[in-house]
Design a protein around this nucleic acid. Sequence first.
DNA 1: GTAGGGTTAG
Length: 647
Amino acid sequence: MVKFCTKTCLFILPKTSYCQLQTQSFIPFSVRQEQKILESRLVSVLHGCTHINQVKQVHAHIFRKGLEQCCFVLAKLLRTLTKLDVPMDPYPRLVFQQVEYPNPFLWTALIRGYALQGPFMESVLLYNSMRRQGIGPVSFTFTALLKACSAALDVNLGRQVHTQTILIGGFGSDLYVGNTLIDMYVKCGCLGCGHRVFDEMLDRDVISWTSLIVAYAKVGNMEAASELFDGLPMKDMVAWTAMVTGYAQNARPREALEVFERMQAAGVKTDEVTLVGVISACAQLGAAKYANWVRDVAEQSGFGPTSNVVVGSALIDMYAKCGSVEDAYKVFERMEERNVYSYSSMIVGFAMHGLAGAAMELFDEMLKTEIKPNRVTFIGVLTACSHAGMVEQGQQLFAMMEECHGVAPSEDHYACMVDLLGRAGRLEEALNLVKMMPMNPHGGVWGALLGACRIHGNPDMAQIAASHLFELEPNGIGNYILLSNIYASAGRWDDVSKVRKLMRAKGLKKNPGCSWVEGKKGIIHEFFAGDMSHPKSREIKQALEDLLDRLKYLGYQPNLSSVAYDISDEEKKRLLMSHSEKLALAFGLLTTNAGCTIRIVKNLRICEDCHSVMCGASQITGREIVVRDNMRFHHFRDGRCSCGNFW
DNA sequence: GTAGGGTTAG
């Protein structure tokens, strides 16, 4: 009688006596204590397991101790196997099947395994079997089932589970179940239902709030997210981070940084996830001042780029987008661990700056490591080839990417190839490639062709590309502008006015050109096209005129075909003079010391006339000028640009 | 058992 263990109890007890078993009131106290200690020890050992073989060893030990029917320990064993991503079939399933009378926790562990790994419907089937055997679920059972619904994106099933939580045992008021319900509805795209669950919850915690904040951020409604956040009584690091990344992901970098500053002022700790959001915001701002600041913050928080691969990769991307490919490479070089993100970000960074050779070299270096290139890596190398006119090399890469590296070409890769051929002037080949695509070409593919038509002045093919683009991206203002510019360059003013009429009919308005330049003390100055509101605008205009006079001396002629309006040449010259990047350049020359690099960021594509002025200015002033337009970087040095006049 | 994350072409 003294050796009365759980195993024997289970054999003699009818399944309905589960509750009685739980209390185990009939086992002598000392034995119960001893057994409990053993069970807890086994659970904690399982908790530390990092490999399936370790779990199997513990399982053998469980057998030796005669605990092979102990649901408490076996449930932990199943949860461990799920954590280690061990496929549910056959091993975890077998563990379950060996138990004669599984309790609700063991059932739930199995249901949860299928909910996280799939097949998701298996979770539901198991739940039904469990109910048929008269076993009541626990709250974990519902959180597991709801996970399966989110993974399967099946909101109808989710609703059924929701009803079950209310009908059976009043689990509807359980905090965990409520939070998981919010998450399920949100993941299935029913934000409204998620919010209703939130409203109806009797008990909420910071997780309930954060789930909803993230949901609103993901659909771009930062106003709703911010309102919720303001109402959140206990803001923790995760909730703050959700706001920072929310703004960053919605292209509102300034607000992301503002929230981060408030977060720091509130004394909340920062971890690598927060930093990634902040770094992404800085990358979008493209300002060197912020780049160095955020790097210091990362170092101070203990998540420096050398030791943290995610922070490091984000910093590489940021420095590249802030115009300093050298700093990006410094980070890359010093990283102790690198992954596919680190390599891809660096390769894309080189490509963005026109450093095709460096991009290809790094790609070759990557192939010598264990890290496999992915689709983004190939986009990086293909764009590098494209901007350097390396057509054959690009074609070779494209041909072997699937065979040698297991990456099937996607629409994006086809877009790179169209760009590669198109830029090189092989427009017919580019069009043929589009026609031969195994999938429907997306906007990027036709856009690449349209861009090539602009470079090589082919209004007829531009018309074909644009007609597809207008269908695929009816509100993409850039496509209309590009087509109209191509017509204007060819002098087809009737077609220009047709495109403009189409734009008006759709209610589309051209974005005003805008440039930013960093002045003294890192202050950012903003210039719009034709903008004379800057306090120094008179001096800026004078400086620009002086510069253009000096350039004319060297043979510069205003490129009137850059103006897409049918107006007089004098008017065209006046319009060209007021382009925002020229104002920013003049301001930079006026306010920064000789030898200082001038860094300009522009919201639209730089025009041909401005491009040649930048080239000339770099030559006669000896300054390095870096312009980031909406496409890429241009490094002007000694009268030449890194893009090779190819953008 | 529940919440936050990095590279993408025109």
